[in-house]
Design a protein around this nucleic acid. Structure first.
Lengths: 133, 133
DNA sequence: ATTGCAAATGCGAATCATACGCATTTGCAA
DNA sequence: TTGCAAATGCGTATGATTCGCATTTGCAAT
């Protein structure tokens, strides 16, 4: 775990560590609910509203990123690795796969706009769902 | 207005025409609420739940597309033009601008996945908001 | 035109994700 | 060890979206 994590002026708590741990071990973006049920809180419960608060903090501090995948209606969160990640979503079964590298050229530039990031999602049918058609 | 629109087996109603008209005249994706208040229903009110139902129908039939722009929590809808569109979002003031052309190379391909589309969003700061920092 | 009926809408209430409020608890600096 | 600001537990509020049902309406058949 990053040792500088808790030195940005905010307190180290079990809840925050738990949320961070779940996000760190995930290979895809997770919903607040998934984080809540997936968290190991040494036997004690972790409240959903706390998860949201922790996530808000992480997003604000740049530790995590929030987004809503295509067609979905719940937000998902992931650790903000500096190399950005993109996902492939099956519109039939809603499974999510990570893309290894960003297919976007590095040269993108815009007039009168300061680009800080981008979001790319590819959607379609995964092998299994395609077969079913 | 497309003349084949109402021949796909569903009824032509004032409400559907109104929603379609608003979406057609928009130059950016709109929320259900914006569509609701923007609709001209010859004096009569248009209910939000009806707007949602009409939008669901349009999405199902491929007439419109639904998405949730980065950082936001409400869905937006737009007419599904065959040439796809992408947007630039200012994370400070939440203004949305359309991108003229897709910067993604046409050659993107994936193993074991049938790509039907993609979604790209660029975010950052618009001129005004950048100046304020 | 009129009729009949399935489909669509008006309207309100339900649901679900997310935010908020406040009393209690907990890190951590002094 | 103590004090206090910050964080959490826990419940409730809010806002977007969906559902249910009685009424209305488009349209095919008469």
């Amino acid at each position: 775990m990053r040792s500088d994590l808790w030195q940005n002026g905010f307190k180290k708590t079990k809840q925050r560590e738990a949320v961070f741990a779940v996000l760190s071990n995930a290979d895809k973006p997770l919903t607040a609910m998934e984080i809540c049920t997936g968290a190991e809180m040494c036997g004690k419960g972790l409240w959903l509203s706390t998860v949201y608060r922790v996530l808000d903090l992480f997003v604000q501090k740049g530790i995590a990123q929030r987004n809503v995948l295509a067609g979905g209606d719940v937000a998902t969160y992931e650790i903000n690795k500096n190399e950005h990640r993109h996902y492939v979503v099956c519109t039939a079964c809603r499974k999510v796969f990570a893309l290894e590298k960003c297919p976007l050229p590095k040269t993108v530039h815009l007039e009168n706009f300061c680009i800080t990031g981008h979001r790319l999602e590819i959607y379609g049918y995964c092998e299994g769902c395609y077969a079913k058609k």
